[in-house]
């Protein structure tokens, strides 16, 4: 089991996550490519992304609260601490689970309770939400687009 997966996901139904061995460079490349696809081509989305910034990419660290792997779009809920020291919940929107599932993303890709650093194109009005760009886990695993 990948080390970032908490125990509750250590179940046979998530064996494919283990099998994928996220650190495998090929899978990483695929995931990066998927992220790139979604990051640069929001046209495949269910709706207009007009509320999200096209210019700014925000990076922050937080703890995964929930991965809503449901249609029409998946949402990654992240708990973080804002600049005023208060806990804040961010909602990061990505593609449809159907598309993502065919490209290697799984319901267990964002295990609740796991710390992660994320990048997002945030909402223009400053609300704690954005279009998902990429994520980097403590063990180096990258999901989506992540260019150093």
């Amino acid at each position: 089991m990948s080390e970032f997966c908490p125990k509750e996901f250590d179940d046979v139904q998530f064996r494919e996550v283990d099998d994928m061995k996220f650190l495998n460079s090929l899978v990483l490349r695929v995931l990066v490519a998927v992220g790139f696809l979604f990051a640069v081509q929001p046209t495949i989305a269910h709706h207009s992304f007009a509320g999200f910034s096209n210019d700014e990419v925000k990076e922050f660290m937080g703890t995964i609260k929930e991965f809503q792997f449901r249609n029409p779009h998946v949402w990654i809920q992240i708990l973080t601490t804002n600049s005023e020291g208060q806990e804040e919940e961010w909602s990061l929107e990505w593609g449809s689970p159907n598309q993502l599932g065919r490209r290697g993303i799984r319901p267990a890709t964002f295990p609740p309770g796991t710390e992660v650093t994320v990048r997002t194109r945030p909402m223009i009005n400053g609300s704690p939400a954005g279009a998902f760009v990429g994520a980097k886990f403590a063990n180096g695993t990258i999901v989506g687009l992540w260019e150093d």
Binding site: H46, H47, S48, A50, G51, E66, Q68, R70, N71, P72, H73, W75, Q77, E89, S91, E93, S96, N98, M123, S127, P128, A129
Partner: peptide, 23 residues
Amino acid sequence: YACAGNNRNPVDVENNRTLILGP
């Protein structure tokens, strides 16, 4: 494709725009 299953982008008919809903 259960579009209504977790649609956090419903249409605001009054203002003719797509909403973004929090959790």
